[in-house]
Design a protein around this nucleic acid. Sequence first.
DNA 1: AGATTTAAGTTGTCTATACAACCAGCGTCA
DNA 2: TGACGCTGGTTGTATAGACAACTTAAATCT
Lengths: 256, 256
Amino acid sequence: MVSISVNRRSRVPLYYQIQQRLLKQITAGRLKTGDLLPSEQEISARLGISRMTARQALKSLCHLGVTYSRRGKGTFVSGIKLEKNFRQVQSFTEEMKARGLKPQARVLSFQTIPARGEVAEALKLPLGEPVVSLRRLRLADSWPMGIECSHLPARICPGILKAFNPRASLYQTLWKRYGILMAVAEEVVEVGRVSAEEARLLRTRPGSPVFQFTRTSYLQDGRPVEYVKSIYRGDRYKIVTRLTRLNCDFGTVRRA
Amino acid sequence: MVSISVNRRSRVPLYYQIQQRLLKQITAGRLKTGDLLPSEQEISARLGISRMTARQALKSLCHLGVTYSRRGKGTFVSGIKLEKNFRQVQSFTEEMKARGLKPQARVLSFQTIPARGEVAEALKLPLGEPVVSLRRLRLADSWPMGIECSHLPARICPGILKAFNPRASLYQTLWKRYGILMAVAEEVVEVGRVSAEEARLLRTRPGSPVFQFTRTSYLQDGRPVEYVKSIYRGDRYKIVTRLTRLNCDFGTVRRA
DNA sequence: AGATTTAAGTTGTCTATACAACCAGCGTCA
DNA sequence: TGACGCTGGTTGTATAGACAACTTAAATCT
């Protein structure tokens, strides 16, 4: 059931108010997998808004992946739970919290260095350009999980060496202090074996198998802002992803 | 440059014609990263269509991730290449082709077995329900890459034991013959070591590190249709993914 | 010169309407 | 019984117009 009214004076768009309301009903479990959502017609009539606005609300839910529409039938709750890691760039902090673990970090080094090699290449910086490099040991519930090394162009985050609180999330700092919001990331995952130094930090045996991550994050306009290399213990870490087919547009299946 | 006209008689929606046309210009490189796309106004005027239709074409490009919009400025080509594996469920065949390698498969076994254990659980089938099980050795350019074992409820694909051509893609067969289109998948990736039998098939040494994949695919309504367990040689395989932040809706950033 | 206002252009939201395509169920007819 | 068509309900597509919010650059004022 959709509640009775929308707030027309609010600066929040009508369609967004409706989307949020329906989303709550789904996440709260009042609308379950396979349930039929109110039709565009019904929403528009009940709330006294136009059908196109109601439609935009429903479409935006399809876009999020929590519903799907069928012409002639209606809009239904899909079986996919909206989880935090659903198709989303996520930091270690967010990821561990989502799994119910307490994330921690121990800073191994934090300094400005000249860009070179793969770092310069990934960040599209000329050689020697200053880069902020942050190397951290990652722990979950006090167990060492991995080693993460982030690189950022120093130009985009002046003063971060002093401003950054080692206990906070790097991403939150970048967003709140510098307005940097990473929109897209490319990630390469490989399998490797730990070196002696890494094994000591991770409290495991040299040569034991690990995940090797290489991630480059970009702004919405495609400029790279972060290059991360990390390794994670293979016996303590797994990757959970949800993938979606893209041969549909706004939920409408098109056969090429 | 958008070409001069659209086909109004075609059954293909106008906005989709426009979307495809713009998409081609981007993938062909005539529109490059950061380039400004024609405005909604301009498209609608030039093609003699309504602004909302032009808007839908541009929005659908944002939705695909190839462009982004800024109020007051315009719509721009984002730095993200539209690759085949972009946020998409993909078969081994499709994946290897996208990397320029020749995919092959050698069927190790293909039979109907009763569902049990993790297979029954993942496919949400009662114990003993018939399941089609296909175990294949995967090769790329004749090099053994991994071992893949698919499980499907026998009920949804009657006669597949005879109909399936071992040289074809399983997914294409399911789509063409049974109309089965997997919409969403959950995938878990872990690190492991090969057994003696697997090592023999993969021509590697027992105990060498491998990726272990566990994937469950679903229809749009959430019913599971496939459960796959596979392993891939760690020295020959890497995972490349592109991730997107979801704190935006139709490209409009909203701070919660 | 510097600050402010104005204007034009762009995307974002919303309305009201129309018709097409599709689905399910019902009734009718052979 | 089975085939057919009708009908009401649903989403998909398309139109025309309006105003809001934002950006940029030019024009104006101080």
